[in-house]
């Protein structure tokens, strides 16, 4: 029991550390797409770890925290994908020009958005 509590607190602190790193990445990264990277990946991992940690500290709550974690896993990537796509389409160019740009109109082979 004491082991579980210790593990839970370690996970909570690690998770909030990841939240802090994600917020730092939002401030320090050079352009929008890198900021999306930092602001979504790191904070999703941090939130997941913290919430599961709360469930481990208090084992009666584990089921509910698991459901909250599932909702975060389902919703956060959709939001970040949507922002990235819309800001590309509205004309924001990446600051560091990369070799590969798969989203240019001539590079798209099949229109994926027609799939149902």
């Amino acid at each position: 029991m004491i082991l579980l509590t210790t593990l839970g607190y370690i996970m909570i602190i690690l998770g909030s550390l990841f939240l802090l790193l994600g917020a730092l990445g939002i401030v320090r990264m050079p352009d929008l797409y890198n900021r999306i990277q930092a602001g979504t990946k790191a904070t999703t991992l941090g939130a997941l770890s913290s919430i599961i940690g709360v469930g481990l500290v208090n084992p009666n709550w584990f089921f509910k925290t698991l459901i909250i974690a599932i909702f975060i896993v389902l919703t956060n990537p959709i939001g970040s994908h949507s922002i990235a796509r819309s800001s590309y389409k509205s004309g924001l160019k990446p600051e560091l020009q990369s070799e590969i740009d798969e989203y240019k109109p001539e590079n798209i082979q099949d229109e994926r958005s027609d799939l149902r």
């Binding site: 389902l74 990537p77 959709i78 949507s82 994926r112 958005s113 149902r116």
Partner: peptide
């Protein structure tokens, strides 16, 4: 919307 948003 895009494919990912629709499936989500």
């Amino acid at each position: 919307a895009s494919f990912i948003v629709k499936i989500g």
